[in-house]
Design a protein around this nucleic acid. Structure first.
Length: 279
DNA sequence: ATGTCATCATGCTGATGA
Protein backbone atom coordinates (compact mmCIF):
# COMPACT_ATOMS: atom_id res chain seq x y z
CA UNK A 1 0.00 0.00 0.00
CA UNK A 2 1.22 3.48 -0.90
CA UNK A 3 -0.28 6.11 1.39
CA UNK A 4 0.35 9.87 1.44
CA UNK A 5 -0.61 13.06 3.22
CA UNK A 6 -0.85 16.51 1.60
CA UNK A 7 -2.10 19.90 2.70
CA UNK A 8 -3.47 20.90 -0.71
CA UNK A 9 -4.54 24.48 0.15
CA UNK A 10 -7.82 24.37 -1.80
CA UNK A 11 -8.70 21.21 -3.70
CA UNK A 12 -10.73 23.21 -6.22
CA UNK A 13 -7.60 25.16 -7.20
CA UNK A 14 -5.30 22.13 -7.06
CA UNK A 15 -7.37 19.16 -8.31
CA UNK A 16 -5.38 18.63 -11.52
CA UNK A 17 -2.09 18.63 -9.69
CA UNK A 18 -3.35 16.33 -6.96
CA UNK A 19 -4.86 13.70 -9.26
CA UNK A 20 -1.77 13.80 -11.50
CA UNK A 21 0.36 13.09 -8.45
CA UNK A 22 -1.83 10.18 -7.34
CA UNK A 23 -1.66 8.52 -10.73
CA UNK A 24 2.03 9.24 -11.37
CA UNK A 25 3.11 7.98 -7.95
CA UNK A 26 0.68 5.05 -7.86
CA UNK A 27 -0.81 6.27 -4.58
CA UNK A 28 -3.50 4.07 -3.00
CA UNK A 29 -4.63 6.38 -0.19
CA UNK A 30 -4.29 10.16 0.17
CA UNK A 31 -5.08 12.14 3.33
CA UNK A 32 -5.78 15.75 2.34
CA UNK A 33 -5.94 18.88 4.50
CA UNK A 34 -7.21 22.39 3.80
CA UNK A 35 -9.52 21.29 1.02
CA UNK A 36 -11.34 24.58 1.72
CA UNK A 37 -14.79 23.55 0.54
CA UNK A 38 -17.98 21.72 1.38
CA UNK A 39 -18.49 18.15 0.11
CA UNK A 40 -20.87 19.32 -2.62
CA UNK A 41 -18.18 21.70 -3.91
CA UNK A 42 -15.43 19.05 -3.95
CA UNK A 43 -14.24 18.12 -7.49
CA UNK A 44 -15.15 14.46 -6.98
CA UNK A 45 -15.45 13.59 -10.65
CA UNK A 46 -11.72 13.88 -11.33
CA UNK A 47 -11.04 11.48 -8.46
CA UNK A 48 -13.74 9.10 -9.62
CA UNK A 49 -12.35 9.01 -13.15
CA UNK A 50 -8.89 8.22 -11.74
CA UNK A 51 -10.35 5.34 -9.71
CA UNK A 52 -10.60 6.89 -6.24
CA UNK A 53 -13.49 7.14 -3.84
CA UNK A 54 -13.69 9.94 -1.31
CA UNK A 55 -14.63 10.72 2.26
CA UNK A 56 -14.93 14.48 2.80
CA UNK A 57 -15.45 16.65 5.88
CA UNK A 58 -15.81 20.34 5.03
CA UNK A 59 -18.15 22.94 6.52
CA UNK A 60 -17.17 26.20 4.77
CA UNK A 61 -14.18 27.84 3.07
CA UNK A 62 -11.90 27.21 6.04
CA UNK A 63 -10.01 24.04 6.92
CA UNK A 64 -11.65 20.90 5.53
CA UNK A 65 -10.13 17.41 5.36
CA UNK A 66 -10.66 14.43 3.08
CA UNK A 67 -9.43 10.94 2.26
CA UNK A 68 -9.17 9.53 -1.28
CA UNK A 69 -8.74 5.79 -1.72
CA UNK A 70 -8.67 3.13 -4.41
CA UNK A 71 -10.08 0.62 -1.91
CA UNK A 72 -13.40 1.04 -0.09
CA UNK A 73 -13.47 3.66 2.66
CA UNK A 74 -15.14 2.27 5.80
CA UNK A 75 -16.23 3.51 9.23
CA UNK A 76 -15.81 7.26 8.61
CA UNK A 77 -15.63 9.58 11.64
CA UNK A 78 -15.46 13.38 11.39
CA UNK A 79 -13.97 14.01 14.80
CA UNK A 80 -11.98 12.00 17.33
CA UNK A 81 -13.37 11.44 20.84
CA UNK A 82 -12.80 14.50 23.04
CA UNK A 83 -11.88 16.78 20.12
CA UNK A 84 -12.48 20.37 21.22
CA UNK A 85 -14.09 23.17 19.20
CA UNK A 86 -12.71 26.69 18.93
CA UNK A 87 -14.63 29.08 21.14
CA UNK A 88 -14.75 31.83 18.52
CA UNK A 89 -16.20 29.46 15.97
CA UNK A 90 -19.34 28.60 17.90
CA UNK A 91 -21.49 29.92 20.70
CA UNK A 92 -22.43 26.68 22.29
CA UNK A 93 -21.71 23.01 22.53
CA UNK A 94 -24.32 22.02 19.95
CA UNK A 95 -22.80 23.95 17.07
CA UNK A 96 -20.36 22.17 14.76
CA UNK A 97 -16.65 22.00 15.48
CA UNK A 98 -14.13 23.00 12.85
CA UNK A 99 -13.49 20.46 10.07
CA UNK A 100 -9.98 19.40 11.05
CA UNK A 101 -10.18 15.61 11.35
CA UNK A 102 -11.53 12.70 9.37
CA UNK A 103 -10.84 9.08 10.17
CA UNK A 104 -11.56 5.99 8.10
CA UNK A 105 -10.55 2.37 7.69
CA UNK A 106 -8.98 1.36 4.38
CA UNK A 107 -7.64 -2.16 3.75
CA UNK A 108 -7.61 -2.74 7.48
CA UNK A 109 -5.63 0.41 8.28
CA UNK A 110 -7.18 3.07 10.52
CA UNK A 111 -6.17 6.36 8.93
CA UNK A 112 -6.70 9.91 10.21
CA UNK A 113 -6.29 13.02 8.06
CA UNK A 114 -5.58 15.85 10.53
CA UNK A 115 -5.24 19.60 10.23
CA UNK A 116 -3.95 20.75 13.60
CA UNK A 117 -4.98 24.33 14.53
CA UNK A 118 -2.37 26.92 13.56
CA UNK A 119 -2.28 28.79 16.88
CA UNK A 120 -1.93 32.21 15.18
CA UNK A 121 0.22 33.74 17.97
CA UNK A 122 1.39 32.74 21.42
CA UNK A 123 -1.15 35.02 23.14
CA UNK A 124 -4.11 34.17 20.88
CA UNK A 125 -6.97 31.97 22.12
CA UNK A 126 -6.26 29.85 19.05
CA UNK A 127 -2.94 28.85 20.62
CA UNK A 128 -4.61 27.43 23.73
CA UNK A 129 -7.10 25.71 21.45
CA UNK A 130 -4.19 24.15 19.53
CA UNK A 131 -2.70 22.72 22.73
CA UNK A 132 -6.10 21.46 23.93
CA UNK A 133 -6.74 19.86 20.54
CA UNK A 134 -3.38 18.06 20.66
CA UNK A 135 -3.95 16.90 24.25
CA UNK A 136 -7.29 15.37 23.25
CA UNK A 137 -5.67 13.74 20.21
CA UNK A 138 -2.98 12.29 22.47
CA UNK A 139 -5.54 10.74 24.81
CA UNK A 140 -7.48 9.30 21.89
CA UNK A 141 -4.26 7.89 20.40
CA UNK A 142 -3.26 6.30 23.70
CA UNK A 143 -6.68 4.65 24.04
CA UNK A 144 -6.82 3.49 20.45
CA UNK A 145 -3.31 2.05 20.18
CA UNK A 146 -3.55 0.24 23.52
CA UNK A 147 -7.04 -1.17 23.05
CA UNK A 148 -6.54 -2.37 19.47
CA UNK A 149 -2.76 -2.75 19.04
CA UNK A 150 -3.18 -5.21 16.19
CA UNK A 151 -4.91 -2.62 13.96
CA UNK A 152 -2.39 -0.53 11.96
CA UNK A 153 -3.18 3.06 12.98
CA UNK A 154 -1.83 6.27 11.48
CA UNK A 155 -2.15 10.00 12.17
CA UNK A 156 -1.35 11.84 8.96
CA UNK A 157 -1.43 15.53 8.27
CA UNK A 158 -0.36 19.08 8.88
CA UNK A 159 0.61 19.28 12.55
CA UNK A 160 1.65 22.96 12.41
CA UNK A 161 4.61 22.14 14.69
CA UNK A 162 8.31 21.94 13.83
CA UNK A 163 9.35 19.50 16.56
CA UNK A 164 13.15 19.85 16.20
CA UNK A 165 15.29 22.93 15.67
CA UNK A 166 16.43 21.49 12.33
CA UNK A 167 12.78 21.36 11.21
CA UNK A 168 12.67 25.15 11.09
CA UNK A 169 14.58 26.82 8.27
CA UNK A 170 12.58 30.04 8.31
CA UNK A 171 14.42 32.89 10.04
CA UNK A 172 11.08 34.68 10.51
CA UNK A 173 9.97 31.87 12.83
CA UNK A 174 11.72 32.74 16.07
CA UNK A 175 11.93 30.44 19.10
CA UNK A 176 10.36 32.23 22.04
CA UNK A 177 8.23 34.50 19.86
CA UNK A 178 6.55 32.34 17.23
CA UNK A 179 4.08 29.52 17.11
CA UNK A 180 5.13 26.16 15.62
CA UNK A 181 8.41 26.09 17.60
CA UNK A 182 7.38 26.97 21.16
CA UNK A 183 8.24 24.51 23.93
CA UNK A 184 4.57 23.76 24.80
CA UNK A 185 3.80 22.89 21.16
CA UNK A 186 6.90 20.72 20.90
CA UNK A 187 6.05 19.02 24.20
CA UNK A 188 2.54 18.35 22.89
CA UNK A 189 4.02 16.73 19.79
CA UNK A 190 6.45 14.61 21.84
CA UNK A 191 3.58 13.58 24.15
CA UNK A 192 1.72 12.36 21.10
CA UNK A 193 4.78 10.33 20.07
CA UNK A 194 4.80 8.82 23.57
CA UNK A 195 1.14 7.79 23.28
CA UNK A 196 1.69 4.87 20.92
CA UNK A 197 2.76 6.32 17.57
CA UNK A 198 6.11 7.17 15.98
CA UNK A 199 7.23 9.33 13.07
CA UNK A 200 7.71 6.72 10.35
CA UNK A 201 9.23 9.16 7.83
CA UNK A 202 12.12 10.71 9.73
CA UNK A 203 14.17 7.50 10.04
CA UNK A 204 14.00 7.11 6.24
CA UNK A 205 14.16 10.82 5.34
CA UNK A 206 16.26 12.49 8.04
CA UNK A 207 16.38 15.95 6.44
CA UNK A 208 14.03 18.16 4.47
CA UNK A 209 11.06 20.47 4.81
CA UNK A 210 7.43 19.88 3.86
CA UNK A 211 6.22 23.51 3.74
CA UNK A 212 7.53 26.82 2.42
CA UNK A 213 5.57 30.06 2.87
CA UNK A 214 4.47 31.69 -0.39
CA UNK A 215 5.98 35.00 0.71
CA UNK A 216 9.49 36.36 0.45
CA UNK A 217 10.99 33.74 -1.88
CA UNK A 218 10.92 31.19 0.93
CA UNK A 219 11.07 28.24 -1.47
CA UNK A 220 13.96 29.46 -3.66
CA UNK A 221 15.83 30.31 -0.45
CA UNK A 222 14.83 26.94 1.02
CA UNK A 223 13.56 28.64 4.16
CA UNK A 224 10.92 26.01 4.87
CA UNK A 225 9.58 24.02 7.77
CA UNK A 226 8.98 20.35 8.43
CA UNK A 227 5.46 20.34 9.84
CA UNK A 228 3.67 17.52 7.94
CA UNK A 229 4.03 14.07 9.44
CA UNK A 230 2.94 10.46 9.34
CA UNK A 231 2.77 9.04 12.86
CA UNK A 232 2.11 5.31 12.94
CA UNK A 233 1.38 2.71 15.61
CA UNK A 234 3.75 -0.23 16.00
CA UNK A 235 1.53 -2.36 13.75
CA UNK A 236 1.71 0.36 11.09
CA UNK A 237 5.38 1.28 11.51
CA UNK A 238 6.58 -2.30 11.18
CA UNK A 239 5.05 -2.44 7.69
CA UNK A 240 6.80 0.70 6.40
CA UNK A 241 9.34 -0.01 3.66
CA UNK A 242 9.94 3.46 2.18
CA UNK A 243 9.13 7.15 2.58
CA UNK A 244 9.52 10.18 0.31
CA UNK A 245 8.95 13.92 0.76
CA UNK A 246 7.92 15.08 -2.72
CA UNK A 247 9.74 18.41 -2.73
CA UNK A 248 9.23 18.87 -6.47
CA UNK A 249 5.51 19.41 -5.87
CA UNK A 250 6.38 22.86 -4.52
CA UNK A 251 7.63 23.80 -8.03
CA UNK A 252 5.80 24.76 -11.21
CA UNK A 253 2.47 26.45 -11.73
CA UNK A 254 0.13 27.06 -8.83
CA UNK A 255 1.68 24.79 -6.21
CA UNK A 256 0.33 24.31 -2.71
CA UNK A 257 2.60 25.77 -0.05
CA UNK A 258 2.94 22.19 1.30
CA UNK A 259 4.27 19.09 -0.49
CA UNK A 260 3.04 15.50 -0.21
CA UNK A 261 4.68 13.01 2.13
CA UNK A 262 4.40 9.44 0.84
CA UNK A 263 4.90 6.18 2.75
CA UNK A 264 5.04 2.68 1.30
CA UNK A 265 3.79 -0.26 3.35
CA UNK A 266 4.52 -3.94 2.79
CA UNK A 267 0.88 -4.54 3.67
CA UNK A 268 -0.97 -6.12 0.76
CA UNK A 269 -4.06 -4.24 -0.34
CA UNK A 270 -6.55 -6.78 -1.59
CA UNK A 271 -6.47 -9.52 -4.19
CA UNK A 272 -7.93 -7.50 -7.05
CA UNK A 273 -4.59 -6.91 -8.75
CA UNK A 274 -3.28 -10.43 -8.34
CA UNK A 275 -3.62 -13.20 -10.93
CA UNK A 276 -6.48 -15.66 -10.40
CA UNK A 277 -4.39 -18.72 -9.66
CA UNK A 278 -7.25 -20.77 -8.29
CA UNK A 279 -9.78 -19.79 -10.90
C1' DA B 1 7.72 45.93 1.78
C1' DT B 2 2.79 43.30 5.61
C1' DG B 3 6.87 41.23 -0.49
C1' DT B 4 1.75 35.46 -1.50
C1' DC B 5 -2.30 32.95 -2.00
C1' DA B 6 -7.27 31.45 -1.50
C1' DT B 7 -11.93 32.53 -0.24
C1' DC B 8 -16.09 35.13 0.60
C1' DA B 9 -18.94 39.15 0.86
C1' DT B 10 -21.08 44.70 3.04
C1' DG B 11 -18.69 41.81 -4.28
C1' DC B 12 -14.41 43.90 -8.73
C1' DT B 13 -11.61 45.65 -3.25
C1' DG B 14 -11.12 44.57 1.47
C1' DA B 15 -11.27 41.36 5.31
C1' DT B 16 -9.84 36.93 7.07
C1' DG B 17 -6.80 33.13 7.66
C1' DA B 18 -2.57 30.94 6.79
Amino acid sequence: MRIATWNVNSIRTRVGRVVDFLVREDVDVLAMQEVKCKPEQFPAEAFDEAGYELAIHGLNQWNGVAIASRSPILDVETEFPGMPGFLKSHDGPDLPKEARAIGATVDGVRVWSLYVPNGRSLDDPHYAYKLDWLAALTEYTRTETSSRPEVPFALMGDFNIAPLDEDNGDPAVVPGASTHVSPPEREAFFALENAGVTDVVRPLVPAGYTYWDYKQLKFPRNEGMRIDFVLGSAAFAEQVTDAVIHRNERKGDAPSDHVPVLVELALSEDDDDLPMIFG
